[in-house]
Design a protein around this nucleic acid. Sequence first.
DNA 1: TGGCGAAATCGAAAAGAAGTATTGGACTGA
DNA 2: TCAGTCCAATACTTCTTTTCGATTTCGCCA
Lengths: 316, 316
Amino acid sequence: MSDSLTFRLLRYIKAAAETLNFTRAAEQVFVAQSSLSYQIGKFEDTIELLLFVRLQNGLKLTPAGRIVATYAETTLNEWDQTLAMALAVQRNEVPPLRLGFSSFINAKLLERFRENYEGMFPGCAIQLWSGDPLLCLQRLDARTLDCAILPLPVDATLYNVQQIAQSPLVVCMRSDDILADRAQLDIHEVAQRITIFRDPELHPSAHTRLVEMFTEVGIPIHLACAARTASEIQWMVKERYGLALIDQLTPLDPGLITRPIAGVNWTADTAFVHASHMDHVALPFVERFFQQTWSDSRRSKRPSKTRHPEQLELLG
Amino acid sequence: MSDSLTFRLLRYIKAAAETLNFTRAAEQVFVAQSSLSYQIGKFEDTIELLLFVRLQNGLKLTPAGRIVATYAETTLNEWDQTLAMALAVQRNEVPPLRLGFSSFINAKLLERFRENYEGMFPGCAIQLWSGDPLLCLQRLDARTLDCAILPLPVDATLYNVQQIAQSPLVVCMRSDDILADRAQLDIHEVAQRITIFRDPELHPSAHTRLVEMFTEVGIPIHLACAARTASEIQWMVKERYGLALIDQLTPLDPGLITRPIAGVNWTADTAFVHASHMDHVALPFVERFFQQTWSDSRRSKRPSKTRHPEQLELLG
DNA sequence: TGGCGAAATCGAAAAGAAGTATTGGACTGA
DNA sequence: TCAGTCCAATACTTCTTTTCGATTTCGCCA
């Protein structure tokens, strides 16, 4: 079925769809008008599909033609990306993917990404760069990072942001805490004791959001300890500096437990972020990868959802 | 750059990548071994890319070859889908897209979808079928619906589920309610009064989730009024049967107001659902459309997020 | 060493694409 | 109304590419 189709023809179709004029389209792709005209006509005949309506003063795309023209454009683009990537892979010239990440994101995400990346592009290195979100974003601007996996929120007007994970926030406490025997906690009874936070400087917008949320619960935030890494937070909890909110999926140090918070549904959201320039050859592929896995992880996670108090998905 | 590439060649590459044997690949695509062998060889020369390593007993894909072979396969598949759709559009033989939806989903979603669908496929009808989620799913099974827009949760192991929207639940009350002058409500002070719910039969899993959430807040659910549509809910509120939880984006009847709930972050999630068989020609396109718009709406929504208490995106 | 499986190569024939030149339709402006 | 213009379609030739069948080459294995 696809035998009559060539990439050359896709270029013809694309040019014709853009110029809406066979003569100028032919110039654009450097062939004679008759060739382009003939090719498109013959193609239309063989697949029995009218792409263009010929008018006196040019062309008009038919609805079917629009569909095919769209296909032509994306297919050509993706071929360019594919060829560039394949060439780079073969020559071993794929620059290391400079991937920034915050210590506050779930390590599993990184791991799964690394596995897939190395599976797709064997021999291509990932250069991990651990740093707080603000720095990561600055480095994206400065083009010293290609992409980053970061906690949300991130200003999506300045960067390409794609959410890739979401999991509930829980209270982290010592296993000998007085509240340890409770299955879950009311936010009001623990809010006062939650005094360990990520250093606001590391991600100001996230902290702002946090302050808002606390205000809405009616409790002013009391920041006593500012931690710069996820493990520092756990250490502080162990040393009795207070309680902390952490991602439910964070691996816990011994002696620590977590408890869900009743009546709130605070979540830790994670996103794949890159600057809009798309410098790295692999970025288009990585982006598509995350598009898929995000929906996949949502799918596979759903059945287990009843076990812990996650998002309420309901009504409308 | 793409001139040396033809769809015929993509088929050769795909066959060779599958069989790992030029001779059998040639049989599979009904050409002589020499043709296939020659074509692939010449292609490798012109783009200076080695796709296959020739061994005594067959072939091995190079890493670059795997990338190209993957491209070949998806591109061919998408062409089949594109051609089928374009032909159907031209012949006016696109069956109406039988789209089920719950009255509890946000009407804007439907509207935006309809606009885009008609833009992409002019003249193609959408057959709306309003029904509660359970019925929609049954009709998907029975193939009397092609797809549906439904509130979550939906069992993703049985259906193709793709989340497309999320917005906070708020309390709906009369504008002369004693709580009307409060900017926001504590869940504990209103939970008792929230007695109007969607009929549990309409979406049992969603109701189960709701009961769980209420239990976690420490309040048993008190279902006094079961509504079958979103407008019935508002009517019941107006008639003082109680308060209700509704999607923040729901258009309100006059005389009603909504207030956010402090300390909880209950959301109404909406998904695009279809059965795995993919009967309708347009489904692949519709699916891709929602993949994009979901991420887009997240992006554009983000800056305005500070205005209302939505999800806390934070920490890790 | 001969047989086998697989890929590469060769030359001839067939198929396809591009080019030039020309035709034909429809609008435009004097 | 008639020449000029714009644009796509057609005819025909030339050139390029693809295919095929036959043959060769290479390494493996009995």
